[in-house]
Amino acid sequence: MQILVFLLDNLFFVLVFASLLRAWMNQSRLRMTEQPGRFVMALSDWLVKPLRRALPNGLRQARLDWASLAAAALLALSHALLLHLLSLIWLPGFDWLSWVWSVPAQALLFLLRTVLQGLLAMTLVYALMSWIQPFSPIGGVLARLLAPLLQPLRRRLPLVGGVDLSALVLILLLQVLLLALG
């Protein structure tokens, strides 16, 4: 059971984060023809495209990518529902009616955890790329995506020996939020 839950968690993490990253990249007006845009589209097109067609015309033309956000929400709900169904199978006497409240709550927690873990991974990659290969294309994309989170920290933190520690502080803050969420 633990192996199956582990595999489901990781599969849905990748799918949900791809949908959220797609929305964020579209919001930031980043080109989806470069990495990680192509990878994100390959992972999320199967759900985002039909949702985009199903949305009312006003939402389709909005600045916010509602189809990608809806895809992330549907995937998180599917993840929570699958975990509940697994609990029904493996735990005799499990309360059938508990899913009414716990599935949406689990889906919301999964979405929040995915956002925090995804930001943590992106910040780690950004920090490493800025030290190893500062002018790489993925570094530029990550810099644009993480700028809204790093700029407030940069305004408050002084450079230490000419080194910007804002990414490291963001990593610590995200870890604290993940601990609080857990």
Rank of each mutant, 00 (worst) to 15 (best):
M1A: 14
F6W: 13
L8E: 06
L11Y: 12
L11D: 09
F12K: 07
F13E: 05
L15C: 11
L15F: 11
V16A: 08
V16G: 06
F17H: 12
A18W: 05
A18P: 13
S19Y: 06
S19C: 15
M25P: 01
M25V: 02
N26E: 08
Q27G: 02
R29S: 03
R29W: 06
L30V: 01
L30R: 05
M32P: 00
T33Y: 09
T33V: 06
P36E: 00
G37N: 01
V40S: 00
M41P: 13
M41H: 15
M41R: 15
A42S: 15
L43T: 04
W46K: 14
L47F: 07
V48W: 03
V48Y: 06
K49W: 15
L51H: 03
R52H: 15
L55V: 10
L55T: 08
P56E: 09
N57C: 15
N57E: 15
N57T: 15
R60G: 10
A62G: 09
D65L: 02
W66K: 02
W66A: 00
A67N: 01
S68P: 03
L69G: 00
A70I: 05
A72M: 04
A73I: 08
L74I: 04
L75G: 05
L77Y: 09
L77I: 11
S78C: 14
A80F: 05
A80V: 05
L81Q: 12
L81V: 14
I89C: 08
I89H: 09
P92A: 00
P92H: 00
F94Y: 12
F94G: 02
D95I: 08
L97E: 15
S98T: 07
A105Q: 11
A105C: 10
Q106Y: 09
A107T: 01
A107L: 04
A107P: 07
L109Q: 14
L111A: 02
T114S: 06
V115I: 07
V115L: 03
V115E: 00
L116S: 01
Q117D: 09
G118V: 03
G118T: 04
L119Y: 07
L120K: 13
Y126E: 10
W131S: 13
W131I: 11
I132A: 14
Q133G: 14
P134Q: 07
P134R: 08
P134I: 06
S136W: 12
S136N: 15
P137V: 03
L142M: 06
L142T: 02
A143H: 07
R144Q: 10
L145P: 07
L146T: 06
L149Y: 04
L149D: 02
L150R: 06
R154K: 09
R156V: 03
R156T: 05
P158W: 02
P158Y: 00
L159F: 12
L159T: 13
L159H: 15
V160A: 15
V160D: 13
V169D: 02
I171R: 09
I171H: 05
L173C: 07
L174N: 00
V176Q: 09
L178Y: 01
L178I: 02
A180V: 02
A180R: 07
L181N: 02
